[in-house]
Amino acid sequence: MIPYAESLLIFTSLAVILASSLNLMLGYGGMFSAAHAVFYGIGAYTASLLALHVNSSILLCVPAAMIAGGVAGALLAVPALRVKEEYFVVASLGFQVIASTVFNQWVAVTGGIGGLTGIPPASFMSIQVDSYGGYLVLALLCAAGVLIALKLLVRSEFGRALRALRDDEAALQALGRDPVRLRVATVVIAAMLAAIAGAIYAYFTSFVNPESFSLDESILIMVMVIIGGTGTLTGPVLGAVFITTFPALLSFVQIPSTILGPTQRVVYGAVITLLMIYEPEGLLGFLRRISRVASFSALRRWQPSTSSS
């Protein structure tokens, strides 16, 4: 049970990194991307190849994964962001399809459908991370680091310009800011952060194949951000936790094993749909509403006692 819980927490931490990094593009920059799993995958493959053929040190593999992810981000962003903003999502979809094909077909490098196996465990100086607990600490530290970096970034001059870009591009241009450059930088940063999750994933599973970095994964990451609530740091974290842990929680419901899988998927889909219909601001909006109702109830309980005194 403990390894299962640890494994779930590790995947949740990776999901937090992926959703939070996508939120930089989607929530703060207003750019919908259907290719975030590509950066996740490039991070995973880069770290895997280096760990297999050079050295499994985190100090080598993670920065290299980030650089590769950033380069991939630039490859998507530089041409795609010169066209109209709404076409970016289509361009990103094309990028995802191309990348999936490369992951599948470039057998000499990616191992094709069979993937890369036997990836050595992560090492840091002379310490080797070879337990679930060790990976949990590593994943939590990376997630915390990414969240802190994003918080600082959003509060910086860069983040201010990014939020302004979402509000009114023309007004920002009139103040001397190049929106294309700002968007490209945002995609590159988001891709670099997503690649960190890829590197940790590769170390932890010791196996990577294209299935983990497909269009389905990209859409799932987008759903995490939207379900949680865009444009805040907390929203995507809530979305990532919900999307990763909810199916696992459903497995504790006592239903016949023959219908367990389909039932889980139906309940899961229904909850997401209902949430979006009744709470378009996502889980964060839902929690805020509950908090307001609770505060109001507390106020109502408090008022009669003060008026009678």
Binding site: R160, R163, A164, D167, D168, A171, L172, A174
Partner: peptide, 8 residues
């Protein structure tokens, strides 16, 4: 139309 950054 002023075009202020409304969320800022």
């Amino acid at each position: 139309s002023l075009r202020l950054f409304s969320s800022l």
